[in-house]
Structures are given as structure tokens and as C-alpha cells.
Design a binder for these strands. Structure first.
Length: 254
DNA sequence: ATGGCTACGATCCGTAGA
């Protein structure tokens, strides 16, 4: 089973990149973030032609998440139960025998801002939700854009980024609280090359300089980790014309 | 030097992302 996550930064703009990538990478499941379109505008027909069925939690202009799978995702749940939120950031569904939670975690804007406070409250609610889901599902994956670079080795220039949003200690602490539930960062289950990132700023030729951050992740439960055989980032779509600023991240399971 | 893109929905710039 091959599971991917990709922040497409507008599904309308990126649909050709997505269908090309699906044809080439052939994931069984993919979690999409930042659709930036409402459910009525979701391209079900195009994706069904590409061989995928979708569970969608869309929103006009901002946010929006979806899970695509070969068979229609089952037992779909949206949002974080008990956490009232206008922003459509979470959708969960079962694909095969794996429970998949697709997340678009808040950006946080800047440390100390209102959006930063929202981010930390949101992560606290996510942790409670995932604690509950782990009790219900031995094989759980949480995949998407976490907007946190967990360690300095996930940051191209840790000194320049020190204390900044995406990297600050309270955000990393929120990430570690997810790890403390028993979830594993699939990427770190394996030996990895240095300087692997999943996001590069559109400005300042960030991609060409590999000035990136690893903020997109696939977390897996202990039981699912036992079956994890590989984890990687595919930089290829970031090289295309008019790319998303994020690259797809991948985890594979036996 | 704190900027520099990109997408969106509203104009002919503001909001947001990360």
C-alpha cells in the first residue's frame, strides 16, 4: 500500500499536475490539502477517470482537504469532533484496513499572533482526537501538511529560522505531543539523505537553492509502522511550471 | 534591507500562505 500526502495549493490550478503524478506514482491513497474550492467544484469526474474516488471536505478560497483512494473511502468523518472550526482542515476515512486522517494544520502566521494561538489550540484538539482514534484503530495514518518542522535537520537554515513560526518551541512541543501518543514519523523510520524538505518558498528562488522546510508528514501508529517499508519526498512536481510550493510525501507499507 | 512569489476574490490592491 502506497500512501501519499500533497498540499496542492489550489486543486483547480494543480489538477493537471495531480493527475500526471497519480498516473506516474500510482499511490493507493492520497491526502490532499489546500484545495481552495467548495465541494460543488471538486473535479470528481476527472479524478474518477484517473482511477480514484474521493471523500471531500472543501471550502471556497482557503483550506479544504480530501482523501482519494482506488475504492470509495469509507466511514468518512470531517473536522475535529468537539472543536468548533469554520476552517475545513481535517477529513478522515478508511481505505482498505487503514484508518487515514488527512490534516491541513494551521500556518500560525507569526509567533504571538492570534493565528498562532489558534494553531496551538488546534493542535491540542487534534491530539485529543488522535488519542481517541488510536484506541479505535490499530492501523492509523495521519498525513498532510503539519506546518511544523520537527527538528533543526528539517530546516535548511536553522539559525535564520530559530524561534520563527513553523519551527518555534511551542509548535515543536505540539508535534512531540502527537509523537507521545505513540505515532511515528514514517520518514524517520529509515536512513535518509540530508537536506530533504517538502516545502520551498516561491520567493528568493527557494527551490533552486534548496532553501526548504520539511513540514509535510505521514505519521503512523506503532502497528502500522511495523509494516512501513519506505518513506520519501518526491521533488519532481516542484520542478514543473507553475508548481505547488509543496512536494508530495510518500509512505509505503507491506 | 524583513522584501522577494502565488492564488484568490475582490479590483486595478488586500488577504493569506509558510
Amino acid at each position: 500500500m502506497k500512501l501519499a500526502a500533497w498540499n496542492v495549493n489550489s486543486l483547480k490550478v494543480r489538477l493537471p499536475h495531480l493527475t500526471d503524478w497519480l498516473a506516474q506514482a500510482r499511490p493507493d491513497v492520497i491526502c490532499l490539502q489546500e484545495l481552495k474550492l467548495e465541494d460543488a467544484k471538486f473535479p470528481h469526474a476527472e479524478l474518477q477517470a484517473a482511477g480514484y474516488r474521493a471523500a471531500v471536505f472543501g471550502q471556497k478560497t482557503y483550506n479544504g482537504v480530501a482523501i482519494l483512494a482506488r475504492a470509495a473511502p469509507a466511514d468518512v468523518a470531517t473536522g475535529i469532533p468537539g472543536f468548533a472550526d469554520e476552517q475545513k482542515r481535517v477529513i478522515a476515512a478508511t481505505a482498505g484496513d487503514v484508518r487515514v486522517v488527512c490534516v491541513y494544520c494551521p500556518n500560525g502566521q507569526s509567533v504571538g499572533s492570534e493565528k498562532y494561538d489558534y494553531k496551538l489550540r488546534w493542535f491540542a484538539a487534534l491530539k485529543e482526537y488522535l488519542a481517541h482514534e488510536l484506541k479505535r484503530h490499530a492501523q492509523l495514518a495521519v498525513a498532510g501538511d503539519f506546518n511544523v518542522a520537527p527538528e533543526d535537520r528539517d530546516v535548511h537554515d536553522p539559525k535564520a529560522w530559530e524561534g520563527q513560526v513553523l519551527v518555534s518551541e511551542p509548535e515543536r512541543s505540539a508535534w512531540r505531543a502527537l509523537i507521545a501518543l505513540g505515532l511515528k514519523d514514517s520518514f524517520r523510520l529509515f536512513e535518509q539523505p540530508e537536506k530533504i524538505y517538502s516545502w520551498w518558498d516561491y520567493r528568493m528562488m527557494g527551490f533552486r537553492r534548496n532553501a526548504g522546510l520539511r513540514i509535510d508528514h505521514v505519521l503512523v501508529s506503532a502497528e502500522l509502522a511495523k509494516h512501513c517499508t519506505a518513506s520519501s519526498v518526491d521533488k519532481a512536481p516542484r520542478k514543473l511550471e507553475r508548481p505547488s510550493d509543496h512536494a508530495p510525501v510518500i509512505a509505503e507499507f507491506s
